[in-house]
Amino acid sequence: MTRIGIILGSTRPGRNGEAVARWVYDIARQRGDAEYELVDLLDYKLPHLDEAIPPSMGQYANPHTLEWAAKIGSFDGFVIVTPEYNHSTSGALKNAIDFLFAEWNNKAVGFVSYGSVGGARAVEHLRLVAGELMMADVRAQVTLTLRTDFENFSTFTPGDYQREALGTVLDQTVTWSRALAPLRAS
């Protein structure tokens, strides 16, 4: 069974991302086309990148890196839930991505973003990072705006049309994850 990790990319207290990630997970796990798991960065306590050797060498030294690598390595693809901070993604998410290399390779990634303009600029940055990590980023994405998809900018109330958009992201992520399987096997 194809395994898709839904990564909650914010560690900020009071984060909107927790409700968004749970929404993604609740919808995804009803589908039956893959095994989905919610991965919360708060559960991994990654410090600012502290590995002396570049991740592309695959010589991880720290227990927190090894734990993170095992988790990310267990998936065939990802849906990343990202906020937009200052026209980019969160520092915590970028740091978590930068810890690893091979564990991301030849896997698909879809994006669900939120922010004042739907988090679109954060996703554009993440697409560049995904390319360097040899990930296939899918075309569809969900962009949630603080004005229309959150009540008082904090209570998540997505429109029904967002569910359809999420379905497309999940369809594409699962399809590409399966298509890339032969590359991961070699």
Rank of each mutant, 00 (worst) to 15 (best):
M1L: 11
G5A: 13
G5T: 05
L8N: 03
S10T: 15
T11S: 12
R15E: 07
R15G: 04
N16V: 10
E18Q: 14
E18F: 14
R22L: 15
V24M: 03
V24G: 02
D26M: 01
Q30Y: 03
Q30N: 13
G32I: 11
A34L: 03
E35S: 14
Y36A: 05
E37L: 07
L38R: 11
L38C: 04
L38N: 11
V39K: 05
D40Y: 02
L41I: 05
D43G: 04
Y44Q: 00
H48I: 14
H48W: 14
L49R: 11
P54W: 07
S56I: 14
M57Q: 15
Q59L: 15
N62D: 04
P63F: 01
H64C: 00
E67Q: 13
W68N: 01
W68I: 02
A69M: 06
A70E: 15
G73T: 10
F75A: 10
G77M: 04
G77D: 01
F78D: 01
T89R: 00
S90W: 09
K94T: 15
N95R: 02
F99W: 15
F101Y: 15
K107M: 07
A108W: 03
V109S: 07
G110I: 01
F111R: 07
V112N: 02
S116H: 14
G119L: 03
G119R: 05
R121N: 15
A122F: 06
A122M: 04
V123N: 05
G131R: 12
E132F: 00
E132N: 10
L133H: 12
L133A: 00
M134W: 10
A136D: 01
V138S: 02
A140T: 08
A140S: 15
A140G: 00
V142D: 11
T143I: 05
L144E: 11
L146K: 00
D149P: 07
E151S: 09
S154W: 01
S154H: 06
T157V: 14
P158D: 09
D160V: 08
Y161A: 13
Q162A: 03
R163E: 06
E164R: 11
L166T: 01
G167N: 14
V169N: 00
V169H: 01
Q172S: 04
T173Q: 02
T175Y: 08
W176R: 03
S177Q: 07
A179F: 12
A185Y: 07
S186L: 13
